[in-house]
Design a binder for these strands. Structure first.
Lengths: 209, 209
DNA sequence: GTCTATAGGATGATAGAC
DNA sequence: GTCTATCATCCTATAGAC
């Protein structure tokens, strides 16, 4: 067994964070705002308080490998947010309203600059770097799975829930994009409300239009 | 009055196209696939069969001004597509199904590389270059307006139609993104179907679930 | 593991002849 | 309007000392 001084993959920032972790966080954060090509490795190393040598020590694959790690991190972060919100609200319709509101808050608090980390990194690189495309596809699939499970838990059939979950992720993603571009949270709030109506419709309940 | 030899802004490529027009097309096409930072001016000039001097002659503002022109072009192109599809199908629900299918075809035919031109160019640059952000916001607003008008023409109240149109654009945008990342047209086809259901719900008609 | 220095190439933009 | 040459800067990645 190692000495394990740190590196225990603490859930959120406990005192000292390993260099590798800091690099991943910096890469994910910067690529979320500036995209893959808009983010330099030098900038990442500075933001992470690491030297260029350390970056290439932990990520010999260079920028491409860093981007894959950043996408994975974004994947996990949004999955955690989804689990937290869905876990707190058994009614899937209301849970999606909460989810949209949460995304809107994050956007507004960052002055409309922190959108979906996966999208920003994968857009424009997907067809050049298959690894990044695959990581992004995995992220979308995982999020879809979380939503599908929640819909099934509320009594929906698997195939219907799966189809709806796909559209839920698409709509949240697109609404976050629209909100970011318009610098206005309205698209996200409307998306939450309309998704809730769509869920109600498929639950066979009375609609709340 | 000028001699107007060409430059009549021909709807689609009629024989000789002006240099300025070729540059805009190249910029729009390349940034659609590679984003703003992933596209070089030299690459644009080569794709446009123009010299670097010509590019800076027509666009003294450099890359930023080129990006604004590219976003405007993408705006117009998608607006034309929307007008064409909505004009051919009076039923808004069916029109949206057609629209989603059309987007899916474009994606598949380009091997999942030609997504939304506006999104790819604006994402990651919006908070750095206000001009680009504004052009992208204008595009989204225009598309939303076209959908809203079509919903109103089908008898829907203005405020309801406006809210729905916002979500329609968000969902189409997000589904195109999801389809691109997954290299699968399913997210778009499901989005079309679900949007149609949402429209039906707000028309008070019997749902076709 | 960390650091500095640097190679080798691409970038946005400009100058000035034609 | 078009072209070529070039500047100054930035980039990814590597080498090698510590």
């Amino acid at each position: 067994m190692r000495t394990r001084t740190r590196h225990q993959t603490d859930p959120h920032q406990a005192a000292p964070v390993g260099t590798r972790e800091r690099i991943i966080r910096a890469a994910s954060s910067l690529m979320q705002r500036q995209g893959y090509d808009g983010t330099g490795i030098k900038q990442i190393s500075q933001e992470a308080d690491a030297t260029l040598g350390s970056v290439y020590h932990f990520f010999p694959g260079g920028k491409q490998e860093l981007a894959v790690a950043a996408v994975h991190r974004g994947d996990e972060e949004f999955a955690d947010l989804l689990r937290e919100i869905l876990g707190a609200e058994p009614d899937p319709a209301q849970a999606l309203v909460d989810c949209a509101r949460s995304l809107a808050e994050g956007l507004r608090e960052s002055d409309w600059s922190d959108g979906c980390p996966v999208t920003a990194t994968a857009l424009g690189t997907a067809h050049r770097f298959p690894d990044i495309q695959r990581a992004a596809a995995d992220a979308f699939a995982r999020w879809r799975g979380l939503v599908r499970e929640h819909l099934q838990a509320a009594g929906m059939a698997e195939d219907v829930a799966g189809d709806l979950a796909t559209t839920v992720i698409s709509t949240l993603e697109g609404a976050e994009l629209a909100a970011q571009v318009a610098r206005d949270e309205k698209p996200l709030l409307l998306a939450g409300r309309h998704l809730a109506q769509l869920i109600h419709l498929h639950q066979g309940g009375a609609s709340t239009v």
